[in-house]
Design a protein around this nucleic acid. Structure first.
Length: 584
RNA sequence: GCCGAGGUAGCUCAAUGGCAGAGCAACGGUUUUGUAAACCGUAGGUUGGAGGUUCAACUCCUCUCCUCGGCUCCA
């Protein structure tokens, strides 16, 4: 049995107290589910009216009263039939549904918890008394809609989220960390550092990369393209639009029709903005006949693509409708699959390390669930590819969670997950084994004996989609990028206009060394210009005046510790070039 | 898409039915600076858009677009 942490018991008990408070406020309330979650709990309710933010305060006070009253959590077992009747009498239709589900699963008994007026179907465990909940260490945080049983087709209930801790100190610490997190939000920093802009006249979910952001993007792109080339990838360029028939063959049309921009009709043909690169690259593979001697073939592309997300799902650079994926497809023989997959893993780990986020990620094996209509139907191939995928991950010694039902429709995935600054998990990178597409597109190679064989295809990314990865990088570094990624690596500030010429000289020298530099010759005070440069999180500020000019030196102010160090120009260039090369 | 909260100058925010404002940024000038904000001035708005109520609308109502928090979905 899963070990239940003490804090989880506290949180879940607090959820019950919330439910009791809601029942006090709305006697006709119907209850959904109310589990403990990270940092707190939630409870879903079907209520006679919509909750407003002010209700949270009222409910919090009611909860405090219940805690003060120190009511006992009474636990009792009941037969399924008994429980069903009891909850039916209470009008708790959602609980009745849950009981029936348990019945179908073969349960004979259910567990009931009672605290004062509130009775709940619940496997527990709970605290003994409501008074054990520290009344000053919880807080109701937000109200949201949530579909019953997480199904869009079901009624939307009202969910109240709360956070709960063992002490007020822990709660305060959590709230403070949330405030800090908001300061790292990539949307806020993106605006402050002028990295990107989303303009409603261009369209929702269609970010514009401003020069500063574009500079970082270019570094990222060059980094991964060069690395891929070193590792034997071949580069392709394919259009962002394609004939819809391409996607009918791939199966994307059937599975994703509603998630694509609608077709554009030209003459008698229909074209769509591509949601994936796969079929385009498949056509490149198919454009010539391949021998087993050529394999593996690795086609890489920084591929722009478009997916019609539901409007409520969009968020800064994290979730967009137009994005650029560092994409690749590897065509190989079944014998080569394992090595290729391990090489992909190695490339990914190399890249994550270079970006400085290798410690932030976790792995997930995304497999198929029971609902087979969601996937291309070939049980044998599915079982095979899922086994290959998990075997390879095991072999690579990677710890992973299993994500049931998270597979792509054409094959299982190994996903790399990362949490954003507010704790929400997203997939940053994915690699997939595809035993289906070769058949659908009639892709083949000629084997040693002159026979046609189906290649295995690995779909993979190494640094993920540029937009999302950028979002994580912004949040990870809070805008203070390492030197190699910084949009402006150095800013030169002449003490007064008398030294502009000397500043220009250094500026030219840095530019010639491909160092991204700026010079601030504005007539603002020195202090003001330094302040602005600090706010822009520029790694190195070079202040130059009379002393420096005479000595052919620069006074280097470092972002990390705000310390200053005077060094020769040559010395500084060597230092920064080394840092850029070593990506520190 | 759904539930909820929002949208006021480039940015951050004020103005609860009665003359749309501040700070920063921008621009012009003075200052020529030694490590996180010099000084003076100027300009900047159909209050997201459309309609309605009213003598009068940033403010109230309806629709719509966009943003944010969740849900669903997802790279």
């Amino acid at each position: 049995m899963k070990k239940i942490e003490k804090i989880e018991i506290l949180r879940h008990s607090t959820a019950h107290v919330l439910a009791a408070a809601v029942l006090g406020m709305f006697p006709e309330a119907k209850f959904g589910m109310g589990p403990a979650v990270e940092n707190g709990f939630y409870y879903d309710f079907d209520l006679p009216r919509t909750l407003i933010p002010e209700d949270l305060e009222i409910l919090e006070n009611k909860m405090k009263e219940i805690i003060k009253a120190n009511i006992k959590f009474e636990q009792a077992d009941a037969s399924i039939e008994e429980a069903e009747n009891d909850f039916k009498e209470l009008g708790q239709s959602y609980k009745v549904e849950l009981i029936r589900d348990l019945k179908e699963e073969g349960h004979k008994k259910v567990c009931i918890y009672r605290a004062g007026i509130f009775v709940d179907l619940c496997s527990g465990p709970h605290l003994d008394y409501t008074g054990e909940i520290p009344a000053d260490a919880f807080k109701l945080t937000r109200i949201s809609g949530a579909y019953w049983k997480s199904d869009e087709k079901n009624k939307q209930l009202q969910r109240i989220y709360g956070v709960a801790f063992e002490s007020k100190k822990d709660l305060d610490e959590y709230l403070r960390s949330m405030e800090d997190a908001k300061e790292r939000d990539h949307r806020k920093i993106g605006k402050e550092l002028k990295l990107f802009h989303i303009d409603e006249n261009v369209g929702k979910g269609l970010p514009l990369w401003m020069p500063k952001g574009a500079a970082i993007r270019q570094v990222l792109q060059r980094f991964i393209e060069d690395e891929e080339t070193k590792r034997g990838y071949l580069r392709t360029y394919t259009p962002v639009i394609g004939n819809v028939k391409l996607y009918k063959i791939s199966g994307h049309w059937d599975h994703y029709k509603n998630d694509m921009y609608p077709p554009i009709k030209i003459d008698d043909e229909e074209y769509i903005l591509r949601p994936m690169t796969c079929p385009h690259q498949f056509m490149i593979y198919k454009a010539e006949q391949h021998s087993y001697r050529e394999l593996p073939l690795r086609y890489a592309e920084l591929a722009e693509m478009y997916r019609k997300e539901k409007s409520g799902e969009l968020s800064g650079l994290m979730r967009v409708m137009g994005f650029t994926l560092n994409d690749a497809h590897i065509f190989c023989t079944p014998e080569q699959l394992e090595k290729e997959f391990l090489d992909v893993l190695d490339l990914i780990q190399f890249s994550l390390k270079a970006l400085g986020i290798n410690k932030e990620v976790s792995f997930r094996a995304s497999l198929r669930d029971k609902e087979k209509s969601k996937y291309l139907n070939n049980d044998k191939l599915w079982d095979e590819s899922e086994k290959i995928l998990t075997d390879i991950l095991d072999k690579a010694g990677i710890k992973y969670e299993v994500g049931v039902g998270e597979a792509a429709f054409y094959g299982p995935k190994a996903d790399i997950q990362i949490k954003n600054v507010l704790g929400k998990e997203e997939t940053i990178i994915t690699m997939q084994i595809d035993l289906n597409s070769a058949e659908r597109f009639d892709l083949f190679y000629i084997d040693q004996s002159g026979k046609k064989q189906r290649p295995v295809i690995i779909h993979r990314s190494a640094i993920g989609c540029i937009e999302r990865t950028m979002a994580f990088l912004i949040e990870h570094y809070a805008g203070a990028f390492p030197v190699w990624l910084s949009s402006v690596q150095v800013i030169i500030i002449p003490v007064s206009e008398k030294f502009n010429e000397y500043g220009e000289k250094i500026f030219e020298e840095l530019k010639n060394k491909d160092i991204r530099a700026e010079i601030d010759k504005s007539s603002e005070s020195l202090g003001k210009r330094i302040r602005e440069a600090e706010k822009q999180k520029i790694p190195y500020i070079l202040v130059v005046g009379e002393k420096e000019e005479k000595a052919e030196s620069v006074a280097v102010r470092m972002r990390e510790n705000k310390k200053q160090e005077v060094m020769k120009i040559k010395e500084f260039i060597e230092k920064i070039e080394k840092e850029i090369k070593e990506k520190i």
